[in-house]
């Protein structure tokens, strides 16, 4: 991957592109996914805004951190196919691997329309059924002139924004309360993004072993059960 982005003046200097990429209306399929929140609601583990906050905090520091670091590594030019393999190793649940690749493929479509470039084309050709979504997001961030912290912020935010929106729909939770949960998580989100970006910067030289692999047992367990439900509101 070259060091200058085809759509931005210098990598990491863009800002508005981050708003476009992180916008909940960015058409990349996220709206149909709850990030495990639907299963947690059904199991009675999320009943109110307090539970949602704990759920989001746990998700942020586990799969959120891991995904954010993969995205950051992709944004600084680590080999996306190596990262894709590292993402597989960090995703023991086949239901979650399928979801990650499906969302990666959907993001790829939107990204190639928004910031067309060779790096996205090459990844799409190498993984026609979709690479893991955070990897695609990192390559997209680079194409949009964004840096590793931007990519990490975007993924870390998605890791909690998706469940919060889903719980508003699932529980009829007050949307102001749900937004307040996200706002209160913001400082931790910044920390996670910084940690992810630091790890991501080391990945090209040290390999994907330098990236965090934080995981959440219940998310892995319930994702598999959720995928088999005959009736559900969200795809994951």
């Amino acid at each position: 991957m070259d060091t200058t982005s085809p759509h931005g003046a210098s990598p990491g200097a863009a800002r508005a592109a981050l708003l476009v990429l992180a916008d909940g209306r960015f058409p990349a399929g996220g709206h149909a996914h709850s990030g495990g929140a639907e299963a947690a609601v059904k199991a009675g583990r999320i009943r109110d805004a307090t539970d949602l906050a704990t759920f989001c905090r746990g998700r942020l520091h586990t799969t959120g951190l891991t995904s954010a670091a993969l995205a950051a590594a992709a944004a600084v030019g680590a080999d996306p196919l190596v990262l894709d393999e590292a993402a597989d190793a960090r995703t023991p649940s086949p239901a979650l691997r399928t979801t990650a690749r499906k969302l990666g493929r959907q993001l790829m479509r939107a990204a190639r329309a928004a910031w067309p470039c060779d790096a996205l084309d090459a990844l799409a050709a190498a993984r026609p059924r979709g690479a893991h979504q955070p990897v695609v997001l990192g390559v997209t961030a680079h194409a949009a002139g964004l840096g590793p912290e931007d990519a990490a912020h975007c993924v870390a935010y998605e890791s909690v924004g998706g469940p919060a929106t889903a719980v508003v729909r699932l529980l009829g939770l007050d949307p102001f309360e749900a937004t307040a949960v996200l706002a209160r998580l913001a400082p931790e989100l910044d920390q996670v993004a910084r940690r992810a970006a630091e790890a991501g910067r080391r990945a090209p030289a040290e390999g994907p072993g330098a990236l965090p692999a934080a995981s959440a047992p219940l998310l892995d367990i319930t994702a598999q059960a959720h995928a088999a439900w005959p009736v559900r509101l969200f795809a994951s």
Partner: peptide, 12 residues
Amino acid sequence: HLDHSHDTTTVV
């Protein structure tokens, strides 16, 4: 890797 096959490409 058992998950992915390499048979198609995506139209944008």
